[in-house]
Design a binder for these strands. Sequence first.
DNA 1: CGATTCTTTGAAAACAGTCAATCTGTGTGG
DNA 2: CCACACAGATTGACTGTTTTCAAAGAATCG
Lengths: 190, 190
Amino acid sequence: MCKSLFDHIEKFTTLNPTEIDKLESVLNLSRIKKKEHVLKEGQICNTIYFVVKGCMRQYIINSRGTEQTLQFAIENWWITDYLSYHNHVPSSFYLQAVENTEVIAIEKNALEALLIEIPSLERYFRIVSEKTFGAMQMRIKYLFTMSAEERYHHFNDHFPEFVQRVPQYMIASYLDFSAEFMSKIRAGKI
Amino acid sequence: MCKSLFDHIEKFTTLNPTEIDKLESVLNLSRIKKKEHVLKEGQICNTIYFVVKGCMRQYIINSRGTEQTLQFAIENWWITDYLSYHNHVPSSFYLQAVENTEVIAIEKNALEALLIEIPSLERYFRIVSEKTFGAMQMRIKYLFTMSAEERYHHFNDHFPEFVQRVPQYMIASYLDFSAEFMSKIRAGKI
DNA sequence: CGATTCTTTGAAAACAGTCAATCTGTGTGG
DNA sequence: CCACACAGATTGACTGTTTTCAAAGAATCG
């Protein structure tokens, strides 16, 4: 069901029935199995994804062969590699389902054409992008100013349900410390 | 002169003469002296800034009283605190001129009204925001995967002129290490 | 169950920070 | 034009946080 997307759009702008129809025609509802990838390093990203249900993540594999999660997307978040998407260059990232996930996928060509046709939709994506950017600025602030332990507690306090939901090693790398260290923080051994 | 902004807009979309006039009417050209602030922590950010000439930075003061630069904006970049701007909450950041800087400032109210009027402009800001977001994703990747020394060399290789232009302690904090450590890297003592 | 996948533990080591002192350069006022 | 003040850069000794590695212990899933 695409209702959650339309509800989300309603928060920022309005679409008339014709516009809704047009938008609906470019949406591809898709189920991604846990651990399945929708993008791998080296591929060009031509799609943006809206999470209807479940959880996606963006990660890289570092020089020691360990996965590091850079971003999560849960219900009502968009996720893609915007650099690859806009510049048509190979991606540096993996996009993977953390759980069995339902997404709405939109292809770049179809979307870009539609955005020119529907200013309200352009507006929606502008606002969402700017807000996400604001969240990213705060994320960098936290990474820069808090110790590993502080980052863990802060995240745990703000997203307790999320911490239950995904494997610890993904949270650890998202907060930029090792899975072992997170385990020690949790055990109160720090 | 606002030519640089119009040139930048031309890269992504086109405005007709009427639209250019309307846009021009909301632009405030302003000179910011080196070290002068356009936003301080606790204030609500109602303005976005386009750097015509010079350099601005976003920074915070950490718990030990040290400034940490989170973002730079040089010629043709936009800078603001998007969280404060969109949610109308007190900012966590300082926005300051690194050099004597010419900016084009636009007030939120005027801009948001204009964006509804001029879809092409909405389009411009959407694309710029998404591209900046893509750059931020890469920045986080570098922060996560490279050692302090690697980050320094990488930055130095990609932006040698910029490293000359701003104080080292700002670069150091932008790359998330101490000024002292940067000094040691430069001296080859690492 | 049996096989992964994920988490925990402890010891040793590395990386980078802190602090305090010194050095360098640059712009300003006398 | 000099002297001084101040901002920025460097240095070394010490400290501490976090990583790495390896091994063992839970938990989950077909």
